[in-house]
Design a protein around this nucleic acid. Structure first.
Lengths: 190, 190
DNA sequence: TCGTAATTTCAGTAATTACAGAAATGACAG
DNA sequence: CTGTCATTTCTGTAATTACTGAAATTACGA
């Protein structure tokens, strides 16, 4: 590996993390390298920078393309493929969220739905279905929220994040007023 | 494997998904089994239900405990360990979020911070640092939001999720009013 | 303090996944 | 066409990870 020390730390870290993210070391390293490169890189440059085989680079880039995490660019009068990551980190976040949902959530959701359609044949199955139904409900609530906020443009999304706690405080205030109203009325009744 | 068909589907699915979630098949299967079981199970029961070795069960339970995903229970006059998952799916979600953050986000955040402390020795490093800084900023914003909303009790969290889009519409309305005011003033000026 | 049951650790093996190098394919210029 | 360069696919091997069965440890009752 032949990289400036500061970049190498970053690349190596992404490699190590790779396994925890469900991708492998090489894929993680290539992504990190592309992310910090000022210019798009071609396969040969990646081979030199990371010291890995040409075929490994080819397959890893394939993987990154399947995740929609890299952009393919072409330079005039050059047949080679050059790769970058999107400039906008928020766009990267969106892609990541979408792809992980597709791979890690949607399949479970559809399996749950399928199982919940069936008639339980025993008390054990009935209880299991009830549990699965709870899980299904939670996941649906989360994905509904996600589908909702992912529509937001970046500014509004950022605002929503920054707001986070404040929305909460607003809700608490509302609750307080409502419950005050309720307890007053219930006092009057009781 | 010796389970009612409906439960078996669920367990097998969690096993298959296991790899995508960064845990292994057995761990996924055991978790799924405990999740749908009406009563806590001991190791031997898991061995019988899933048809895997006793030692494998022991190591997988260890892994699940490291993730705080299972509860250890003891019955009176019985030395064996019995395991369950929490009843409340929201609690499970919280644990999952916390553990994944700890494993998948925090290490990256600290590596980024460390690298950003250093003096870039070249233009390439300077640019790389700028990119890392963008990433760091985004992750910080996300984790701040997370630290914020994770404090909420479940009712309020659920409300926040359901609200999702509506908060947005509120923001949009506010934006419209503000920008109307601005454009009016700028028209007056221009 | 011995014996027994439960659990954990360990060492070897099986299974899976990652990778390199070679061969094949594709794309284009002349 | 043919030759060249870029990329992909394929096959075998290396490395890693998952798993088993045996041995060791722990916990506790008699």
């Amino acid at each position: 590996m032949n990289l400036p020390p500061l970049i190498q730390s970053f690349v190596l870290h992404f490699g190590e993390m790779g396994s925890r993210w469900g991708i492998n070391r090489t894929v993680g390293q290539i992504y990190a390298l592309l992310y910090v490169s000022p210019e798009p890189l071609n396969a040969e440059q990646i081979v030199e920078a990371l010291g890995i085989s040409r075929s490994n680079v080819s397959m890893s880039l394939r993987e990154l393309q399947a995740w929609n995490l890299v952009l393919l660019k072409h330079l005039p009068d050059d047949r080679r493929d050059f790769f970058t990551t999107p400039d906008d980190v928020w766009q990267i976040l969106r892609t990541l969220a979408e792809e992980r949902k597709k791979r890690e959530v949607d399949p479970t959701l559809s399996v749950l739905r399928e199982i919940l359609m069936q008639q339980p044949a025993s008390e054990a199955e009935r209880h299991a279905q009830a549990r699965m139904s709870e899980m299904h409900g939670l996941i649906e609530q989360l994905t509904t929220w996600y589908e909702d906020v992912k529509q937001l443009d970046t500014d509004r999304l950022a605002t929503l994040l920054t707001l986070g706690a404040k929305v909460t405080r607003l809700l608490e205030a509302k609750d307080k007023i409502v419950s005050l109203g309720r307890s007053k009325r219930s006092t009057e009744k009781g």
